[in-house]
Nucleic acid binder design. Structure first.
Lengths: 209, 209
DNA sequence: TCCGAAAAACGACGAATGTCGTCTACTGAA
DNA sequence: TTCAGTAGACGACATTCGTCGTTTTTCGGA
């Protein structure tokens, strides 16, 4: 039932979805996610309950859209754009993930339960994946000058998948460690773990180094 | 409500949980996961519906236990035990993940939907994580001979988290690629991406190399 | 062998879910 | 300005959910 996504022209659709996501945001400051019913959400959003199902299959789908949207917004605000090589871009992405987890999970001590967490993980990971893919593909082109070898190295897709998963897995591990240090403190460790993956692309491009 | 896990003495508990997991397995050969109700499961398991909730908070929790259990079983059958260094152990884990995805997702074309997939991901990833942790901790001990430095390298926990996420992320990417090659064909690529993470530990141990 | 503890069966409950069909109101292009 | 297309409102429906209290059965140690 939920029509496409991302690019919605009709202002009515955009309005309703923002209302629903805003209502979810508001409610999650009080209750934990699975204490919230679809009814609660539509009431807070002043939207009919049946209308909810015109946009999302269930409240988990709404959560995913909300998280993905929020994280993308954060990345845009910080003007983060992975260019395929620069470690500082990777740092920015890692820090963004740290901050986003901190921001969203600050109010409620709800997490680590039910189907909630895996959904959040999925949403953030694929958001990171998208950013990385962008950079990897553009950093890739210079190499495909001629028809040399078809696929002598891992595809950008699999690199992005592995890297985004690794980044978020590490960040999550940091976040759920009791009394974890500040994000900046763990950054070098995560960077050390993740950079080799991202540089797989570059290394394959310039074996000179 | 769900009492501990893993190590259950009481045969009544073990029996009931196996019945429930078996019923889920059977039903998933026919319907997709979210077409299955708790009622369906308990009917097939010849268990009272209320009893279900004595063991699992909802059907998602049952799924997670089922997946985690099945994957662990596969690892045990293959006698996989990561020793902290050997790349062949990593290969075995990667292949196991490939095979498990293939086995479980063969019947139904259901996947990539609802809250189902993220749950599966979570279960498999944390199973891999556990195996890796085992090896990393034992491969770690030789170094902690004296009180040298507190934590000059990434902790085993964060290494395991990053590595397990990266492994499964890559495997998943492979699996969902249309007309993907055999698992053995993609193994070198994934290995190339993941080994640097795992060897972070070893490198820190013997900077001589 | 017996007996207390605990698991499972059972029936019933109010609440939440997901889906209909119909009607109203808004959008955007002719 | 008009008007066809479509999103949203609304009420109602059968199902499923999660929980409760009670009764029956099973387990495992004394």
């Amino acid at each position: 039932m939920p029509i496409s996504d991302c690019e919605v022209r009709d202002p009515r659709i955009r309005r309703t979805r923002l209302l629903l996501q805003g209502a979810l945001r508001t409610l999650m400051q009080t209750k934990s996610f699975d204490e919230i019913s679809v009814q609660d959400i539509t009431d807070a959003a002043t939207v009919n309950r049946a209308t909810f199902y015109d946009h999302y299959t269930d409240k988990y789908a709404l959560l995913e859209a909300y998280i993905a949207g929020g994280f993308h917004k954060l990345l845009n605000e910080r003007e983060i754009c992975y260019d395929g090589t620069c470690p500082s871009a990777a740092s920015a992405i890692i820090l963004a993930a740290c901050d986003y987890l901190t921001l969203t999970h600050s109010g409620t001590e709800c997490s680590r339960q039910s189907a909630f967490e895996p959904l959040v993980d999925e949403a953030i990971t694929s958001a990171i994946r998208r950013v990385l893919m962008q950079g990897l593909k553009q950093g890739l082109k210079p190499a495909t000058d001629a028809a040399s070898e078809p696929a002598a190295r891992p595809s950008p897709e699999i690199i992005a998948a592995a890297a985004s998963s690794a980044i978020y897995g590490a960040v999550k591990e940091w976040f759920y460690t009791p009394n974890h240090p500040r994000a900046e403190a763990i950054l070098p460790d995560i960077l050390q773990l993740v950079l080799p993956i991202l540089q797989t692309n570059a290394r394959a491009l310039s074996p000179v180094l």
